[in-house]
């Protein structure tokens, strides 16, 4: 990923979205962050449908941060859509949820998630997590060129 690569954050809770944005700023992640607040919007953004239908020039995200419990389409459905999408199917998907339930973890990996993170309680935990995301997924990891 380079500094212009888009990160898509699928998060319905505006507080969580705001805190993640804050943590990204704190640790110096400068990539454009697109925030969609439900599963349908995530599918529309990646599939160029709905409100994103005529946005031909819109680049696809190179990292997707995905909450599981979402209005309309669930995180699992979004994941399944991404993995079947012609171009986006190799895009790293990091599940970022408040659930630490075993069945959610299993279902996420079975659906093709690349990582499973539980939203930390506390600002410090969140900043640590953002720092690690930056170091690994943005700086170290190589994705398939879009």
């Amino acid at each position: 990923m380079n500094e212009l690569s888009i990160i898509l954050l699928v998060e319905d809770n505006p507080d969580d979205a705001e805190l993640i944005k804050y943590a990204f700023q704190k640790v110096g992640i400068r990539n454009p962050l697109v925030i969609v607040t439900d599963g349908d919007a995530a599918v529309d953004y990646i599939g160029r449908t709905g409100v994103y239908a005529d946005r031909e020039g819109l680049p696809l995200p190179e990292l997707i941060l995905l909450d599981l419990k979402l209005p309309r389409r669930s995180g699992f459905e979004v994941l399944s859509f991404v993995r079947q999408h012609e171009t986006a199917r190799h895009t790293p998907v990091v599940v970022l949820t408040s659930s630490d339930q075993e069945k959610d973890i299993c279902r996420s990996y079975e659906g093709g998630a690349n990582s499973f993170l539980v939203k930390p309680i506390g600002r410090d935990g969140l900043i640590d997590m953002a720092r690690a995301l930056k170091a690994y997924w943005i700086n170290l990891n190589h994705g398939v060129a879009l």
Partner: peptide, 21 residues
């Protein structure tokens, strides 16, 4: 228990997070 862990923790994260900010 699932609902508690999922839904009650969300506003909690916000309270704690923003207060610390």
């Amino acid at each position: 228990a699932y609902t508690v862990s999922h839904d009650l923790r969300a506003p909690l994260r916000a309270m704690e997070g923003f207060a610390r900010i």
